[in-house]
Design a binder for these strands. Sequence first.
DNA 1: AGTAGCAGCTAGGAAAATAGAAGCGACCAG
DNA 2: CTGGTCGCTTCTATTTTCCTAGCTGCTACT
Lengths: 118, 118
Amino acid sequence: MALEPPTHADAAACERGDAALSRAFSFLGKRWTAVVLGCLRPGPAGFRELSRAIGGVSDSVLSDRLSELTEQGLVARTVDEGPPVAVFYELTERGRALMPALDQISTWAREHLSQGEA
Amino acid sequence: MALEPPTHADAAACERGDAALSRAFSFLGKRWTAVVLGCLRPGPAGFRELSRAIGGVSDSVLSDRLSELTEQGLVARTVDEGPPVAVFYELTERGRALMPALDQISTWAREHLSQGEA
DNA sequence: AGTAGCAGCTAGGAAAATAGAAGCGACCAG
DNA sequence: CTGGTCGCTTCTATTTTCCTAGCTGCTACT
């Protein structure tokens, strides 16, 4: 039986929750996104503050990530036009809603991915 | 008070669960990884079968993803040396352990990321 | 004044990830 | 024998991603 009617189990086989998953990973998978979200978790932070806290990310990339996250509505950018203009980013509700999922992956990683492994 | 001693809240500010998270995303974030895992969820599948089911992925990339996943112990590669050599991939326990997390992200994406949005 | 911090953006190029096509050995049906 | 399937691997071209480095403008401390 090399000719099992492949009329099913093809495109329909996957496509369960993958479309959504793919879209999520399209930006969650970017190099610093998760870290940025992690740094924002404790509370609001300014650009330079994040830059320092993360350490190793360039302004341009940080700026990109922050923009993407803002576009997706995961973080909010607030400008305080006081004499010294100040800006701070913080998680939105949508962003917070993602935290549990991130935690779960993090937990899984700790349990199943020893850091010593290649 | 522009000089709040920044001696704290710097490097230590993030680095909570991010190291693990980053490692997880280092391969979960790759373009087809999540989809492959999703396709493997229902049960074992052969290379060509996956290729067809996913549709849009090239052999080379699929091969890569499968190798990475196998290395990480998320999927198992079994060879059946029967007369017609057959190979099939399937999720390991470690791989299955990740499913709930993936589901959670998927759910989050469905709820907070309308596909119509940019 | 001079120095230093904050908030970003832009340019340019190196590096990495992808897609797509082709090739190889085996096997099975006609 | 010929054609089609399976399971990959290798090669190249293109796209995407990331990092380095510099720059503008404003405020505040010394």
